[in-house]
């Protein structure tokens, strides 16, 4: 396996490559993105493993546990979770950062996992819906969704629950209007918003004092 990889690397060095082309543009054009600079650094320091185009081994810290996985650098975190790690809670719906069905929490921030590359998520704490419940006990947000019938088909629900949890982590005591604004990044097709609003307010109440980090 490794010998094949080495061969690919050698071939790439010798052939005309996108990286070589970018380098050829020169460093003084003033419109260079940090991405190009980063690539130059990579070339200058061969000790750092080249990322791709084949699968690379990475480790992701998901729900407090390290997960080793081999993915191509272009693979999104959403696809990595779903297709490589069997964590299918985050859903791929619009696939371009509009609907929020793939929402996870990365380093304390609510993010769309379809617009984050898996390799970018290395070294950060990733929370997914699968890590919310304690054995035998739902997280207060999930429980509140249940209590308020805040789901129908359920496809937007994992994303909504994570968005609500992330929102409440930063706004533990929100008003009704703040809930409406704070959860504007998630779309539901069945029309569960009435239940979701009630659920988030209930969860806020229950998480006061004994909040789940």
């Amino acid at each position: 396996m490794s010998s094949t990889k080495d061969e690919i690397r050698k071939k790439r060095k010798s052939a005309f490559s996108r990286r070589g082309f970018l380098k050829g543009l020169g460093a003084g054009t003033g419109v260079l993105s940090t991405g190009v600079l980063a690539e130059q650094e990579t070339d200058a320091a061969p000790a750092t493993p080249v990322q791709g185009p084949g699968a690379v081994a990475i480790t992701l810290d998901i729900n407090g546990r390290p997960h080793k996985v081999n993915v191509e650098p272009r693979t999104t975190l959403c696809d990595t979770l779903r297709n490589h790690l069997d964590l299918t809670g985050a859903k791929r719906v619009c696939d371009r950062g509009t609907c929020g069905a793939c929402t996870v929490i990365i380093g304390g921030k609510v993010m769309y996992s379809c617009t984050v590359l898996a390799i970018e998520a290395q070294g950060k704490k990733i929370q997914t819906i699968e890590g919310l419940a304690q054995p035998g006990k739902l997280h207060p947000v999930s429980q509140a969704f249940w209590d308020n019938d805040a789901q129908q088909c359920g496809y937007c629900t994992p994303g909504f629950v994570m968005a609500a949890k992330g929102f409440l982590d930063h706004h533990p005591n929100p008003t009704y209007e703040e809930v409406k604004k704070g959860l504007g990044g998630n779309l539901c097709r069945c029309g569960t918003y009435v239940g979701v609003r009630k659920a988030v307010l209930q969860a806020a109440k229950e998480m006061q004092g004994g909040r789940n980090a």
Binding site: V93, C94, R96, T98, G184, G185, N186, L187, V196, R197
Partner: peptide, 17 residues
């Protein structure tokens, strides 16, 4: 044919029901 320009209401677009 996407969800930016094929618009669905978000949670803040909906008044009291």
């Amino acid at each position: 044919p996407d969800m930016e320009f094929y618009k669905l209401a978000g949670i803040s677009d909906i008044g009291e029901i």
